[in-house]
Design a protein around this nucleic acid. Sequence first.
DNA 1: TCGCGTACGGTTGTATACGAAATTATTCGA
DNA 2: TCGAATAATTTCGTATACAACCGTACGCGA
Lengths: 226, 226
Amino acid sequence: MSDQMSSGLELVGRDSGIPLSEAVFRSLCQALCAGLYRPGDRLREEEVAQRLKVSRTPVREALGRLMAKGFVEPASGRGLVVRSLDAAEVLELYAMREILEGAAARLAAQHASQPEIDALTDLENAFEAQAGDTAEMARLNRAFHETIFRAARNRYLDSALQELQDGIALLGITTFSIEGRPATAAEEHRNLIEAIASRNPDHAEKLARIHIQEALRSRLRLLQER
Amino acid sequence: MSDQMSSGLELVGRDSGIPLSEAVFRSLCQALCAGLYRPGDRLREEEVAQRLKVSRTPVREALGRLMAKGFVEPASGRGLVVRSLDAAEVLELYAMREILEGAAARLAAQHASQPEIDALTDLENAFEAQAGDTAEMARLNRAFHETIFRAARNRYLDSALQELQDGIALLGITTFSIEGRPATAAEEHRNLIEAIASRNPDHAEKLARIHIQEALRSRLRLLQER
DNA sequence: TCGCGTACGGTTGTATACGAAATTATTCGA
DNA sequence: TCGAATAATTTCGTATACAACCGTACGCGA
């Protein structure tokens, strides 16, 4: 634990030569993913500026980017509010993910280099070595999928998938907290790696789509038990 | 022709209650698509601000959004420059479009309402009624595709496809200036409408993918004859 | 003549100040 | 007591001013 947890919302990476607005943006992303701001919460420029001890200008820039990403939306006269994904949007998000992850797996089976395939195996081993640490599992899982994205050799596909991943991170708690989900996901990952390594695009796409469908099942179970 | 062509870059929609930064953003998008700024051109905040007769603040916000869309990129010390798509990127763009348009057509075959199918037919009729006006053909073509996007009932898919369309608009001249391309496209459109109307997802996806592949062929022919 | 260092100009990054619009609270009247 | 109108406050949108950074060009020395 950091000794300066305070009320959260710490300015990240101020030491580096990155612009302040970038640091503010990252801080807000982090705060949103950490659940520091819950959906429906107001997000006022002045308040954020004061908490981060910067002026409104860089805050404004960061909020603009957050709005472009769809994380927050304007609430007439009351500043911005953190958006929440309704049930329909969750379904659409996973439907889109199925399309894109399927396509990425197909392309990865065609274009992945041997080092990339090795990296997938390494990440998967690390993933399975993690027992109960869901946060670390989520991190490794994301790294695994991002490796596939890059292996697909299409920057538009890559950035679209990154966007979706961010949207999922916004949903909060990961599905790996569900009993048995990590083991199932691990097996799906292993099969997918094998399909990619054996250069079988059709099979890779099919397995990736099934993987996302299973992830959706877990997600819905998680949402409904609230 | 407008009587105020001047040197271009007119501030659009200032009368409405939209924020200035939004108006600046639209103006710049328009200018970019119109080829007023060519790839490689510098885009300085101060210069744009003066030409639009606003301060740097809203210009800065607009340029930030343009950068997020990948239309411009920072050139250290020299402001921003308009990005150009190299050959590899064009291929990736169309590959991504094939994936997404295919998925959209599939979903549209499942979810399109009768009014939407009628709208597609109307737009296609209007498209074929246009003889030589390539600009109007491009507009109708985009409306046609956007109707399919919406009919797919997935807002993530829709926004991703809109982004790609913007990227294509950035390429400049449309492929409809090629001899015979409008007629070919029209036939592909008709076949696609029929597949959607007869609720055949597999066929709709296949036809949409072929349509994009043909569009890419035309695009490459256009690029190579420079 | 070539290389290095310094100085200058240009460009963005950030802060602060002002104005407009919308919302909310309060008060007055019925 | 309830409704409507007005005033006050909050919040954003825009402008302007200042500071820091990065290239570039010029000059000096080897």
